[in-house]
């Protein structure tokens, strides 16, 4: 471990030096925060901006890199990519792959929600390989787990689902639940459901089985090369398993401070959407986000 860490550290350090002048505070601060726990995240940072050494003294590429995170001006080794850029691509892909395949740890979420009752469920997808190949199974509750769900007259149930990035869920979901719940004065909130091998539509099954009027599914989004820890929130009013479609949902994506949506803003937007959904008795295309900030709607899981 220490050998690897030293090698990666040297490599990243060398690349980061070239950046100091260009991206003064921002990227270094980000790197400093991340260095301790996520070496690959630092590599990703340099991958986005770090072509300076490949095209010596090119102010042009430095300037252009401020306008896009595309991997431009990388230089060449013969016809191929220089070694550093090849490894940076691999580091980004590795972070994404690890996010997809690292196991969901419901204990982590439960521990971050002290005083909040939680229930654990599984989908009918028995393992990760099945989950990836059979989205239909990830949308249905395991029958035994469904039978054990509590029922009640709840206004909303939060479903924390691993989706395609358990890392996103471990890092962000509990705070979003806490921040959102704090803004829901007078709502009768069900125990938080922690769902393994789950797709968005599993929330329909959960809300229906528990008798909750609304489902908020917090789920790990498909990792990209620049973000492996992006959390999505899907709001569905009175879902009916098998009948509700993605057009009946509202979505907030890219919850991922500090680079994506902050917890506070995500919670405020969610709480506003939930209040309006309850008022109108619907979610989906009929419910618009009027807060003045258009969020990118990711492809539904």
């Amino acid at each position: 471990m220490s050998d690897v860490a030293v090698q990666e550290g040297e490599f990243v350090g060398e690349a980061a030096v070239g950046e100091v002048a260009v991206r003064a505070g921002e990227s270094l601060a980000e790197a400093a925060v991340r260095t301790g726990d996520q070496v690959d995240e630092v590599g990703l940072q340099t991958g986005e901006f770090g072509g300076e050494t490949a095209v010596p003294a090119s102010d042009l590429w430095s300037a252009l890199r401020r306008r896009t995170q595309a991997r431009i001006g990388l230089g060449r080794a013969g016809s191929a990519l220089p070694t550093r850029h090849r490894l940076e691509l691999q580091a980004a892909h590795a972070a994404a792959r690890d996010a997809v395949h690292s196991p969901f740890a419901p204990d982590v979420i439960a521990a971050a929600l002290p005083g909040t009752p939680t229930v654990r469920v599984r989908s009918t997808a028995s393992d990760r390989l099945t989950y990836l190949q059979r989205p239909d199974l990830g949308r249905r509750l395991d029958p035994v787990d469904r039978a054990h769900l509590p029922t009640g007259e709840w206004d909303v149930v939060f479903v924390v689902a691993d989706g395609l990035s358990s890392r996103a869920v471990h890092e962000h979901a509990a705070v979003v639940v806490r921040e959102t719940t704090a803004r829901l004065g007078g709502w009768n909130v069900a125990p938080v459901v922690l769902a393994e091998q789950a797709r968005v539509a599993l929330g329909d099954d959960v809300a229906h089985a528990m008798g909750a009027a609304m489902a908020v599914v917090l789920i790990g989004e498909r990792p990209g090369m620049s973000a492996a820890d992006s959390l999505g929130a899907y709001l569905t009013h009175r879902p009916v398993p098998g009948t509700t479609t993605d057009a009946d949902r509202n979505c907030l994506s890219n919850i991922r401070p500090p680079r994506g949506l902050s917890y506070e803003r995500a919670a405020a937007k969610l709480a506003t959407l939930m209040a309006r959904a309850r008022e109108l008795g619907l979610t989906g295309v009929g419910l618009k986000d009027d807060s003045g900030h258009e969020e990118e709607l990711e492809r539904l899981l």
């Binding site: 990388l74 016809s79 191929a80 090369m225």
Partner: peptide, 20 residues
């Protein structure tokens, strides 16, 4: 660019790959 599409979030061939 670099085989990484930052808009569609997937990996494809790079300009370099065509040179290869």
């Amino acid at each position: 660019p670099g085989g990484d599409d930052i808009m569609l979030n997937y990996q494809s061939a790079s300009y370099h790959d065509a040179l290869y």
